[in-house]
Amino acid sequence: MTAKILSLNVNGRDETILCDGLTTLQEVLRDQLGLLTSVKDGCTQGGCGSCSVLVDGELWLSCLAPVAALAGRAVMTLEGLKQSAGIAAIQQSFIDNSAAQCGFCTPGMILTVKALLDANPEPSHDEILEALSGNLCRCTGYLPIVEAVKDAAARLSGGADAARASEGREG
């Protein structure tokens, strides 16, 4: 296997990556680039969605993406999205709807929702289910996540009165 050097924009910074033909984007993000551990490793089979990232704004499974094919592209993880439009509303909606328990699937879920709402600010119920179909959650039973997506869409498109008040107290 020959080593290859390429450049990749990660969370807004140009990075130089050392990889071979089989190195996945997930490995680079989790191990080479200062532990971007919001990118989870739930299966390394493309089956759970917990490693989801955005590549040029599109949702990708980083565990299946050979990084060698991504030279020059822009990758975003949850760490890099802190200042991004809408992310705070999505996160607050997840909190207000108790849409996480163990939290392992949550970063991937949030990126999936971000990609959905960027492309389709007012998704229908079925479009939300379709968008979430690649992300597994073993704790919540999905209903709170679906509610959180609807809530986030309302917050982002409808302003203050569309955002539902939180039912619970902050712990």
Binding site: A100, Q101, G103, T106
Partner: peptide, 11 residues
Amino acid sequence: KLRDLKKHVGG
């Protein structure tokens, strides 16, 4: 609310 929620949603 679950105490870890903020940490979870922030990755």
